[in-house]
Design a protein around this nucleic acid. Structure first.
Lengths: 374, 374
DNA sequence: ATGTTTTGCTGAATCGTTTAAGACGTTATC
DNA sequence: GATAACGTCTTAAACGATTCAGCAAAACAT
């Protein structure tokens, strides 16, 4: 009969189920049953086991021991493009996480945010060593070694906003179509000179204008597809997309967007419209215009992507591509969970997008006299 | 010699280190060493082990087996007041998480978001069964059974924005002092009739005006302290805080804030100033005023709490109490990590706050003729 | 040639559970 | 009265790794 009360606090070793069993004079199996299958033992004994457990400071089965035996952890992992802390600074990612967490919480699962390290030296150890039952892989570059490492685990997984891989289910949007729609909106308004403020094209992006080869071989699918969508629209208007300046940002922040837009607006001839790959960047573009005393939309049209809440509150309110971030998260989570349950999941889900017209886009100034707009 | 290539994909059993060992003709200990202590075996053999591992589809040591043996998981948990998905909808919580994730990522640790379930029936199973090396407990009610369950695990922990407990380190702000400062700002401007839009006072809050007993026995420390701070300031101005209406919200959303403010503004006599416990709620209060065609600040002063980014962009910009959300997260994370490293951590950290004066507060209209303001 | 250290590997115990399968006494069934 | 069924509890074998003491051979020193 050995007590263990001294271990209150974070120090000291916790009691094990075996010790509880010994102290209560039963077998370990019975202790296990007390916690996991109340119907397998008499209520009286169960109570006694709990009583002893309390006395010994045993707070229930150790998750690792249990997990090892049961082959399941009760948590799903989430892998993000970049440093974890950046995810929380990106409204779109936060909304996505909101959706994922909703799905996982419904299922009683934990959500394990896996540290990737900075993009420079991604450390696969964390994803190799993370205790999880499955994972959602969000917005990663198609050649990111972490994706490889993650998939190697052979866990149930779902890819989000990424190229398909093997038979892993995926959810995403039609980036190319959405971008095309956004650009066509501008060509229809009569714009002829565009600039693109782009998200990262490859993980090791250094920022700056991207040449056509770089555009072609972007390893982030979303960026590549959106670029393609923009280009298609431009071509459709009889223009040549190759000449269109594309400034690649390294972070999805208003600051980076501002810098990019400033670079583009310094060009001659100056574009009359900016195609921006995210609202975070677009907010920065608005700021750039403001600093140049170039009024939006009169002097410059801007169309964003994502439709984050701040887009509607911006001055002027931002014309942008809406996409269902939270729903994407919920879908991804559910898809993963149904795999965990062994159900055969649908292969791929493409969620709808919608161009939201607000105040940041009008015909170019050159056309005003032609009666299109006043 | 047995291959296992058929298990590509999520199905199939993964190879174990023992199988790799057998196939490579070495002992399991050697396989382990190949992964964990490269210096313990010849480079040639190590390469051979990896080669066999690759062939067999062995992606490195199983996290659970390893975790069990090593007594450590490589992840820290995070426990939140409410449903996880709500955390992502609350900018303050998101900033806090940003900080925590920064700290954990630096240390190469995962961040496990523990599902609590809805507040009604909190399920302690998840916190009992979560595989983690330590946890941060954020903004929980002092009588929440989940806190008890979490502390019972005897893991290293840190409490955030919560009453101290035992010798668990904690980080927070001086809620009472900050609230008092906010309220004193208004009393100094000459306001005499106040309304309080309050965050939840207890987990099972139903919303509505809270009587004095309810205010007294609030189990969320932040709410209780802020209420106390407001009251102190009011008393200091020679008024009686007991008469001040306090409307308790159930969620920290603009919608709830609007509803609360509407209820308060319908009172007679109508308060000239609103003390609001969060900016999310305050944004809703502004909306309520707008709907009543009551202009802020001329007809109503509003002071918030948190200084979320949207506060500065609101119309009018919100006077509010700034607090270092992200830094709080970093501090909490670091405090936890230093415990994990066995370092004796400081007991308690109180972070600074600051009242940020913006456009939502002016003297009450009654005083304008007296020359104070125009 | 002998003693000592180093290198490279293995055997066996251990981490804390869960879970088939089975033992044993009691009660229901025909 | 035999048999089946049941309720309760136990035995023993996993689950997948790590770690420490130890051992043989090789390298080095004397």
């Amino acid at each position: 009969m050995y007590f263990n009360l001294s271990t209150r606090g974070s120090g000291g070793r916790r009691a094990t189920s075996k010790e509880v069993a010994a102290e209560a004079g039963v077998s370990p199996a019975t202790v296990s049953n007390a916690y996991n299958r109340p119907d397998q033992l008499s209520p009286a004994l169960r109570e006694r086991v709990f009583e002893v457990a309390r006395r010994l400071g045993y707070a229930g089965p150790d998750p690792l021991g249990r997990g090892l035996r049961r082959r399941r952890t009760g948590a799903v992992g989430m892998l993000y493009t970049d440093r974890l802390s950046y995810a929380f600074a990106d409204p779109a990612a936060v909304m996505f996480l909101e959706g994922v967490s909703q799905a996982t919480e419904e299922a009683g699962l934990g959500l394990l945010l896996i540290p990737g390290g900075s993009l420079g030296d991604r450390d696969p150890e964390a994803v190799r060593g993370a205790a999880m039952d499955g994972l959602v892989i969000y917005c990663m570059a198609e050649d990111d070694p972490l994706v490889e490492a993650a998939l190697d685990r052979r866990l149930p997984a779902v890819l989000v906003d990424q190229p398909e891989r093997g038979d892993t289910p995926s959810v995403g949007i039609d980036d190319e179509g959405a971008a095309r729609t956004a650009a066509e909106h501008l060509t229809r308004l009569g714009h002829r000179r565009f600039g693109v403020v782009s998200l990262k094209l490859t993980p090791n992006a250094t920022g700056g204008f991207a040449d056509s080869q770089r555009r072609e071989y972007a390893t982030y699918r979303s960026s590549r597809s959106r670029l393609k969508g923009y280009a298609t629209a431009i071509s459709g208007a009889g223009l040549s997309p190759g000449e269109m300046p594309v400034y690649e940002c390294t972070e999805n922040t208003p600051e980076d967007g501002r810098v990019a837009a400033e670079a583009i607006l310094a060009l001659h001839p100056r574009p009359t419209a900016l195609l921006v790959m995210s609202d975070q960047l677009a907010l920065g573009a608005l700021e750039a215009a403001r600093r140049r005393e170039l009024s939006v939309p009169e002097g410059l049209s801007v169309v964003g992507f994502d439709d984050v809440p701040a887009a509607a509150r911006a001055a002027p309110p931002l014309t942008t591509v809406w996409q269902p971030h939270a729903e994407k998260g919920v879908k991804a989570g559910r898809l993963l969970i149904s795999q965990l349950r062994g159900e055969e999941a649908s292969r791929t889900e493409v969620l709808p997008t919608r161009l939201v017209l607000r105040g940041s886009t009008v015909p170019p100034a050159e056309l005003w006299s032609e009666g299109g707009w006043s």
